[in-house]
Amino acid sequence: MIEHFSHGYITLLVAFGVSMTGSAVGLLLTRRARQSDRPGRRVPWLLGAAFAIGGVGIWVMHFVAMLGFAVDGATVRYDPLLTALSAVIAVAVVGCGLLIIGLGRYNALKLVSASLLTGLGVAAMHYTGMAALTANIELHHDPAYVWSAIGIAIAASGTALWLAWRLDRAASIWLASGVMALAVNAMHYTAMLGVRTGAASGGPVIGVESWHLIFPMATLTVFVMLILIYVVATEPPLREPGMNRAG
Rank of each mutant, 00 (worst) to 15 (best):
W165F: 11
W45A: 02
G207Q: 02
N107D: 15
L213G: 12
W165T: 06
V25A: 07
F51G: 04
V224M: 06
F215Q: 14
V222I: 14
M130W: 06
Y127G: 01
V222S: 13
A199I: 00
S36F: 05
Y230W: 15
V60H: 10
G203Q: 08
A199T: 05
L98C: 09
T197V: 07
V184W: 10
P216Y: 15
D142A: 11
A186M: 12
L120W: 12
M20W: 14
L85E: 00
I227M: 10
H141L: 03
H140R: 02
G121V: 06
T118R: 10
W174T: 10
I53E: 14
V122E: 12
L47M: 14
S172V: 04
D168T: 07
G121S: 09
T30A: 04
F223P: 13
W45C: 04
T190M: 06
L27R: 04
A24H: 09
A87E: 00
I150E: 03
L213R: 12
R31C: 03
L27A: 09
H188R: 04
E138G: 07
V76K: 03
A15W: 09
G26Q: 04
P44T: 07
V25K: 04
M243T: 02
A153G: 09
A65I: 10
P237V: 00
E240M: 00
G102R: 02
G104Y: 09
A74L: 07
G198A: 03
A144I: 06
R32V: 00
